[in-house]
């Protein structure tokens, strides 16, 4: 098991609020790791920290390490743009840019200096195919991305993340706003994408976690209570708090 991404004794405070408590977790390559836990337990905070999306928030203090390919991402020489190119993020609400489908996908590669039309065309097609939406949009690439349905927009956002050829894909409740058919498409997509990428998802849907993830990490009050193979977590969890949560006995 090769962990392409791992945290070591990661702590995060929003002011006085100790939101991540000494979290040590490995996310192995070409596997889907699901983060689960009740609202406010720190899943999004953890995910954002992996992409350094909250270290500029005023009052935030971070201790410990996030190691991506043997490199602590908080080291001063690490360039955040470089990091985000390799570690992509898809958010809960689809957030396509108010521009054409084509430009949404080409946006990232362009900022990384790719200008040639042919090359961009190729990247756009490959990314849209990768996100399983090419057939649905290939005839209207010039149309606004905002004209698409929620499920389609979410797959556009996934395609946009894929366009810069990342290693790791982080998804924060990427299907919570979608209907079962779109959800199922994205779940199939995740299963497909893990052959090429390493994926970390946050989900409140326990069935989704069992369907798509290889490993699971259960958070509670900022603490990593238990992590392990999804089958083990959902059949014989070690910690009673995990069992209580996944069987809905909480609170």
């Amino acid at each position: 098991m090769d962990a392409i991404l791992k945290t070591e004794h990661l702590n995060l405070w929003y002011g006085d609020n100790h939101a991540l408590k000494d979290v040590t977790l490995e996310m192995p390559e070409h596997q889907v790791t699901a983060l689960i836990g009740p609202s406010g337990c720190g899943k999004s905070t953890f995910l954002k920290t992996l992409d350094r999306m909250n270290d500029l928030i005023p009052g935030v203090r971070i201790e410990g390490k996030v190691i991506y390919r043997n490199q602590n991402i908080f080291d001063p020489q690490v360039d955040v743009t470089w990091l985000r190119r390799h570690v992509g993020m898809v958010f809960q609400k689809p957030n396509p840019f108010p521009m054409s489908i084509y430009d949404n996908i080409a946006y990232g590669p362009r900022t990384h200096g790719i200008r040639g039309k042919k090359e961009l065309d190729q990247i756009v097609e490959k990314s849209l195919r990768g996100a399983a939406i090419w057939d649905e949009v290939k005839d209207r690439l010039k149309k606004s991305a905002l004209s698409l349905s929620g499920g389609q927009q979410q797959r556009i956002c996934i395609a946009r993340a894929l366009a810069v050829e990342p290693d790791v894909l982080l998804m924060d409740e990427a299907t919570s706003a979608l209907d079962p058919i779109s959800t199922s498409k994205i779940e199939d997509l995740i299963a497909d994408l893990k052959k090429t990428y390493t994926i970390v998802i946050v989900t409140h849907n326990m069935q989704q976690a069992t369907r798509v993830s290889d490993r699971c990490a259960f958070f509670l009050h900022g603490e990593l209570v238990e992590s392990g193979e999804t089958e083990q977590i959902f059949s014989v969890p070690k910690d009673k708090r995990t069992e209580d949560y996944i069987t809905g006995r909480f609170g």
Partner: peptide, 9 residues
């Protein structure tokens, strides 16, 4: 119920 863990058992 789509049970898991002890419920599934």
């Amino acid at each position: 119920q789509q049970p898991v863990a002890r419920d599934l058992r």
